[in-house]
């Protein structure tokens, strides 16, 4: 009985109910009846093929970042830098995509953009990885700081014509890049009315591969060993520095690839704030999932649904979208607070 009460799924359900009640109160505060609010929320989550598609896209971005986070986490590193890696990956992905000729075929264009994004994010994370390995600087602090520098790199890239800004023809020219050539855009999958793109497949594949590598390969075992005790691993002859830098680089790479995917999704341009803070949300998904890739996919899906439901809540029911942000963060805080009980149950 006690064990069941302490089960993470039960605790999560209770947290969800509490957060949902708070959400209904907020909707009521804005003068919307609970029934209308719930209708609008569900409509925005899964009501139409369009809603399902965009929810899945958001979930996939979060899942990619969280899957990468899990790799570094296995090596005992907390990657707080998803947001910066996402930004830099978006910049390198866009740069590669824009360098391609207009008529590039999709089987060349899409991989080029994705690989460029992965490389950009991985390089960005490696700065923190190298500082950790060479100088022992806490990766929590360096990745946190690199978020802001990464956002600066993005802002610089979209504001300077010498970099990625589209040619300025009038005062109304927005500070963003030119659109990617058609061959560099992520292809749509599934129903014609749904905006779901290849990123959904990529995210599931990434989670699968990460799960397999961590559980069934020597590399996974080595990463786990470093995570448990870097000193003992070093004595066993493992390349601790290499594993730490590598783990963080994969985390950054997946976040960077997610950034490249965002750029290669409609409207196919690199703009400031294209990340929508997904880097931070992805970090929260990764931390809540506590190393389980199944949990990564489930929590990412939940967050994707909530985000898109919230947008519709504002459009259709006139409830400020901020109230969904409140519900979402309440949910996370409740789960984070309750971990002390679920952890005891696990022991």
């Amino acid at each position: 009985m006690i064990a069941a009460v302490r089960h993470p799924v039960f605790v999560g359900a209770v947290a969800a109910i509490v957060a949902a009640c708070a959400g209904l109160l907020l909707a009521a505060g804005a003068g919307t009846s609970p029934a209308v609010a719930v209708d609008a929320l569900v409509e925005g989550m899964t009501g139409t093929p369009y809603a399902i598609g965009s929810s899945l896209n958001t979930a996939a971005v979060l899942a990619l970042i969280a899957a990468g986070f899990t790799v570094a986490y296995r090596a005992g590193l907390v990657n707080v830098g998803g947001e910066g890696q996402l930004c830099v990956g978006g910049v390198t992905g866009a740069a590669a995509g824009l360098a391609l000729p207009q008529g590039v075929p999709g089987w060349i264009g899409v991989p080029v953009v994705l690989i460029a994004g992965f490389a950009g994010g991985a390089a960005w994370a490696s700065i923190a990885g190298l500082l950790k390995a060479k100088r022992g600087t806490s990766e929590v602090i360096t990745t946190l700081l690199l978020n802001f520098v990464g956002a600066g790199v993005l802002a610089l890239a979209v504001h300077e014509e010498a970099l990625l800004r589209q040619p300025v023809t009038s005062a109304e020219t927005l500070p963003q890049s030119a659109p990617l050539p058609p061959g560099a855009r992520l292809p749509l999958i599934g129903s014609i009315e749904s905006p779901a793109t290849l990123i959904v497949v990529l995210a599931v594949a990434a989670a699968l591969i990460v799960a397999l590598v961590l559980r069934h390969t020597p590399t996974g075992l080595r990463l786990t060993a470093v995570g448990h005790s870097p000193a003992a691993s070093a004595r066993l002859g493992l390349g601790v520095a290499r594993l730490e830098v590598g783990g963080l680089a994969v985390a950054g790479g997946l976040a960077g690839a997610a950034g490249a995917c965002l750029v290669a999704t409609a409207p196919y341009v690199l703009a400031e704030h294209f990340s929508s803070g997904y880097g931070f949300t992805g970090l929260v998904v990764g931390l809540l999932a506590r190393g389980s890739l199944t949990a990564v996919l489930a929590i990412a899906l939940l967050f994707g649904l909530l985000t898109n439901g919230g947008i519709n809540l504002q459009l259709a029911a006139g409830v400020p979208a901020a109230s969904v942000q409140v519900v979402q963060s309440l949910l996370v805080l409740l789960i984070a607070a309750s971990m002390i009980w679920t952890r005891k149950g696990a022991r």
Binding site: L26, G29, V140, V284, L287, V326
Partner: peptide, 27 residues
């Protein structure tokens, strides 16, 4: 007291504050 992860709670508390104050400002 609850020994929750400081990074998660910090970032999320910020999101909560942003959401709550934006909502409050609308009203």
């Amino acid at each position: 007291t609850l020994r929750a992860d400081q990074i998660v709670t910090g970032i999320t508390a910020n999101a909560l504050a942003l959401g709550a104050t934006t909502y409050g400002a609308r009203l």
